[in-house]
Simulated assay, not measured.
Amino acid sequence: MTKAPAEPEVESFLAMLAAQRGAAANTLAAYRRDLAQAAQTVGELAGAGRDDIAGLAAAWADLAPSSLARKASALRQFYGFLVDEGLREDDPSSALPRPRTRRPLPRLLDHAAISALFATAEADACAGTPEGLRLLALLELLYGSGLRATELVSLPIAAVPRDAPFLTITGKGGVQRMVPVSARAVRALSEWLAIRGKGGRFVFPSPKGGHLSRVRLFQLLRDLAGRAGLDPETVSPHVLRHAFATHLLEGGADLRVLQTLLGHADIATTQIYTHVDSARLVALVNQRHPLGNASTG
């Protein structure tokens, strides 16, 4: 029997995973398999509604929690991709079953890695090239303001006020928030805008029209990481957003303030960073306390 071709939306989603996240062939095959199996129950995934998705609970009733979590994650990411790309307005994945599994801690970059990234980007910017100035502005906004990749690449010129250190960001669900911009980020952004030229509605335009793509942003960061002596696999827009949040929390930021800055609708999403900070504190005590390495015998 000839296997039916995957939906074009599924193929686009898998291509994004490969380009942006560097997903391995086995990982892509697992996503493809999970989505194909869901489609056997639901039908066409791209157009499925909440009731269709809710029907998967019965089909998955005998699965182990880890398998159920993996399949649900594949669908959530798929529908999140469709919403981000403007291919549908609603996300039906909220109807998926949610197994009780421990949420992994986000991947982190320490202060030394961040310093290495900025040292390399600043050296590029000193040359005064458009590419160097753009990269530094991108890095400053990712780490300095915690923007999502989509929010950053699609940032319109109108969102950058001339007389206030804030950006007006339109996040998930069309919800707007004000994001403060550091003095150094304002300087990098100003230098980029001065050389960017006029025309176009986006801060980071694409030579082909529209705005810089998320795939290109991912590639730029990986190249920067390699030149900074870091493992490119450890650096991405999302990792820099995590670093922004974690380092603010380390510095004493309030969790509610962090929720606002990140644009989280639910404080529970932000609370993952309390676990990150707690883990760091435990490691710090074990490493630095006078009795941390003392024998208990």
Results as ranks from 00 to 15, higher is better:
residue 257 V to K: 13
residue 283 A to C: 09
residue 51 D to W: 06
residue 239 V to E: 12
residue 44 E to R: 11
residue 46 A to L: 12
residue 20 Q to C: 06
residue 222 R to Y: 08
residue 165 P to H: 02
residue 244 F to Y: 04
residue 41 T to H: 14
residue 37 Q to T: 10
residue 243 A to R: 02
residue 266 D to N: 10
residue 285 V to M: 15
residue 281 L to V: 07
residue 123 A to Y: 04
residue 35 L to Q: 09
residue 90 D to R: 07
residue 197 G to H: 08
residue 246 T to K: 06
residue 280 R to D: 02
residue 166 F to T: 02
residue 256 R to C: 03
residue 207 P to C: 13
residue 31 Y to C: 14
residue 204 F to H: 01
residue 53 I to K: 13
residue 136 L to E: 10
residue 263 G to Q: 06
residue 53 I to G: 12
residue 81 F to G: 05
residue 68 L to W: 01
residue 80 G to N: 00
residue 85 E to L: 07
residue 288 R to A: 15
residue 64 A to I: 13
residue 56 L to F: 04
residue 211 H to F: 05
residue 277 D to F: 09
residue 256 R to V: 08
residue 57 A to D: 10
residue 161 P to M: 07
residue 129 T to P: 05
residue 167 L to N: 06
residue 41 T to W: 13
residue 271 Q to F: 10
residue 247 H to E: 10
residue 76 R to I: 00
residue 39 A to Y: 01
residue 132 G to M: 01
residue 92 P to D: 11
residue 183 A to K: 13
residue 93 S to L: 08
residue 93 S to A: 14
residue 44 E to Q: 12
residue 149 A to E: 04
residue 74 A to Q: 05
residue 295 S to P: 08
residue 275 H to D: 15
residue 247 H to A: 15
residue 136 L to K: 00
residue 58 A to Q: 10
residue 132 G to L: 07
residue 46 A to S: 15
residue 117 L to N: 10
residue 216 R to L: 07
residue 48 A to N: 08
residue 253 A to E: 09
residue 204 F to Q: 05
residue 189 L to C: 03
residue 151 E to V: 08
residue 121 A to S: 13
residue 189 L to T: 01
residue 225 A to F: 04
residue 139 L to T: 00
residue 258 L to Y: 01
residue 55 G to T: 03
residue 10 V to A: 13
residue 227 R to F: 01
residue 63 L to E: 12
residue 37 Q to Y: 11
residue 204 F to C: 09
residue 132 G to P: 02
residue 271 Q to W: 10
residue 259 Q to H: 05
residue 136 L to Y: 02
